[in-house]
Structure formats: C-alpha cells, structure tokens
Amino acid sequence: MLQVENISFRIKSKHILQGVSFETYPGEFIAVLGANGAGKSTLIKLLSQEHKPFKGRILWKKRALRKTSAQQMASERAVLTQNIHMSHDFPVNEVVLMGRYPHFKNYPQTKDLEAVKATMQQTDTLVFRDRSYASLSGGEKQRVQLARALAQLHEVDHHSSKLLLLDEPLNNLDVKHQHNCLRLSQSFAQQGNVLLMVMHDINLAAMYAHKILLLHQGQVVGFGTPTEVLTEDKLSLCYNFPVKVEHHPYHHCPAVYFGNFPKAVGIN
C-alpha cells in the first residue's frame, strides 16, 4: 500500500534520513518511535510531500508520490502536523469543517456537516462546537485539529484505502483523551486504512500499534510487531538510557521501564 524505498534526506550537509525503507499494508497502525532528532517528523514531512527526498522513492498504491499532486492526494490522505498556530480566530466547527474543503466546492453538503459532527463526537469536542478556537486549552485545540484530520477522510470512498499521518497527536492530551485518540486511530486503521503516528510513549505504542518503526539517527533500527522491535538492545541504543523490557501482565505486550535499576531485585 505505502512503499518507502531507500529514501534519504538532508538539510545542507546534515543527513536527517538515510536509506529508510519499509512497506505497510491496509489495516496497519504504525507507531513511529525514536529519540529527539531521529528523523520522525522529517519522515512525516516526506510522506506528506512537504519535502522531496534526495534519493529513493515513495509509492502510494503503486503510484510515485513525486508524480501526484498534494491536491489529488487530499481526498485520500490527511495530515496532522505539530504546533498548529491559527493566524485568525474561527469558531471550532468551522476549523473542523476545513478538513472537508477537498470535498465541496462552495458550500458544505449534508455529508460534510455529518462528517464534522461525527468526528467531533469521536474526539469529544462537540460540546464546544460554537466556541472560538482561540479560547480553547492546548489539549482541546489538539483534539479539534485531530477532528479536522479525521473529518477529511470520514466516509470518503469506502473501497479505497486512505492514509492518515499524525505527528505527535497525543501532545497536551490527558490520559483519557490519549487513550481515546489511540482507540480512534486503531479503529480507523482497521477499516482498511494506513495510519502512521509519531509518538513518544513507548508503552502506549506497544499497547495499540500493530507495528513499530524505530528510528535512530535517520536510519531504521527496527520495523515489525512491538514484541519484535521493543527489545532492550534496540531501545538502549536509540535512547541511550538504561531500559528493561518485561511482559505486560494485562495487555500481553512488551512493558518498557526506563531508569536506573537497583542491582538486587527480589524479596527483601
């Protein structure tokens, strides 16, 4: 579905990404992990055509991204970038409606308004639909922007897979809304779509994602199921920090603990 073939990207002489390759299939929720500066956001920018790779190519449904315009992609790809700053203030529901702009010409149709309502319900933002965006808190703004990205792909051509790219969508969210966002992402992927999410909480990634893409200094260290990728060797290499990986007693996925551990662990 989404094929990334040996892509490299650099800014001046600094290599940000080097020889990154991976392939994803419909229904996959992929968590992109790595330390600061590992190239996670740059990867999202290449996938959203904000930058062009210096080498390699990206294929979406066997079509080179280089040969497709952002306008064509807008009906099957939505992007949520980090730190969105709105230059003018709008009512919240108008911000979400912007996600539907690729789908109507001048005035929103019934299905556009339905999509706005449905995704605002999903992200728990419907209560402040008429408030001004500027009056919201950081976490509320983040949820509104997530609703906008979801609205863009809501009920658009069921038979065709869509691509959702989320760059740190969990920023500023409280525990409940973090889990809500992850659940939404999971069910979005399960409808035959592809979702890439940059995140920092490794345990949440292990709990919700189908696959993990672990980046270190612009290169892929691991790509596979959480159990395959989240090993002590790989994580300590990436984060340069003491780490232990155990089995999660309830969710049956890896549970990762960071920090310095006392030498003797046992009963008194």
Partner: peptide, 13 residues
C-alpha cells in the same frame, strides 16, 4: 485554510 498554515492548507488540497 491558510489560517491553519501554508503546509496545512496544502494538506487539505
């Protein structure tokens, strides 16, 4: 759309 940002406006086509 531009009030979201230039890139964000491109992303919504």
């Amino acid at each position: 759309a531009l009030s979201l940002g230039e890139q964000e406006a491109r992303h919504i086509g």
